[in-house]
Every structure is written in C-alpha cells, then in structure tokens.
Simulated assay, not measured.
Amino acid sequence: MPWQKTFTLPEHTKGMHLVTKEVVKECEAGLKGVDIGIFTLHCLHTSAGLTINENCDSSVRTGMWCPIE
C-alpha cells in the first residue's frame, strides 16, 4: 500500500550529516509491517543533496567532503 509523508529535518551546518535516525523516526508508521519494497526519499531543498552509502565505513563521510574554495 503506498504511503507518503512530508517532514522537515533539523537545520545543520555546512557539511555531510547522518540523518538516518531522523528519517526512520519520521517514516516509522509507513514502514510498519513492510518486509520488502521501494523507499524513495526526495529532498526539496535547492542546495542540499542526499547520498546513500549502504554498509560504508566511517571514512566515506570525510572522503566525499569537497569544500568550495
């Protein structure tokens, strides 16, 4: 059964931030009882982006950061 929710994440400083806990908390009701499916997360912010790093090690966050000079 399709499920949709719009929510706002807390404001963060410039950089990469883990938001998994916040996303799961906001989407708990829609994920309840789901064993398999497709999860689409859409970022409406014009200058933010999402990356998914399944099973990555902690160095991925620092290795991907490219500051604007």
Rank of each mutant, 00 (worst) to 15 (best):
S58P: 02
F39E: 08
E28D: 13
S59L: 05
F7N: 10
G33N: 14
A48I: 00
V60N: 04
K14W: 09
M16P: 00
T40Y: 10
L31R: 02
S59Q: 09
S58F: 08
C27Y: 01
K25S: 10
T46A: 12
G37W: 12
S59M: 08
A48E: 10
H45W: 01
V24G: 01
N55P: 01
I36M: 10
C56K: 04
K14M: 07
V60E: 11
I36S: 13
P10E: 09
I52H: 13
T13Y: 03
D57Y: 02
A48C: 15
E22Y: 12
H17L: 04
T6E: 15
G37D: 09
E22S: 07
E11P: 00
W3N: 02
V19L: 04
K25I: 02
H12E: 08
K5C: 04
T6Y: 14
S59Y: 12
S58G: 03
M1Q: 11
M16A: 07
P67R: 08
S58Y: 07
G37T: 04
V19H: 08
V24Q: 11
F7L: 09
G37I: 08
V19E: 14
T13E: 11
T8V: 12
C27K: 03
L50C: 01
F39Q: 06
K32S: 14
S59E: 13
K21F: 10
A29P: 00
T8S: 15
K5R: 13
L41E: 06
H45E: 09
D57N: 14
L50E: 02
E54L: 11
V19P: 04
G49A: 14
G33P: 07
L41Y: 04
L31A: 10
T6F: 07
T51F: 08
G30T: 00
L31P: 01
T6Q: 15
G15C: 03
A48Q: 07
K14F: 09
I38C: 05
I52E: 08
K5E: 12
V34H: 11
L31H: 08
L9A: 05
E22F: 02
V23D: 03
W3K: 01
T62S: 09
L41P: 05
T8G: 01
C27W: 05
E22N: 10
C27P: 01
F7P: 06
H45K: 01
F7D: 10
G49P: 03
D35S: 12
E69L: 03
A48K: 02
H42G: 06
I36P: 00
R61N: 02
C56F: 11
P2Y: 05
E22K: 08
Q4A: 14
G30E: 03
L50I: 15
N55F: 13
S59V: 10
G15S: 04
H12P: 00
H45C: 04
I68E: 12
P67W: 03
E28S: 15
I38H: 10
T51S: 11
I68R: 07
L41V: 15
A29K: 07
K32V: 06
L9H: 06
L9W: 08
K14C: 03
R61V: 05
H42V: 13
W3R: 03
P2L: 12
V24P: 01
M1K: 11
A29H: 04
H42Y: 14
E26G: 00
K21W: 07
E11F: 05
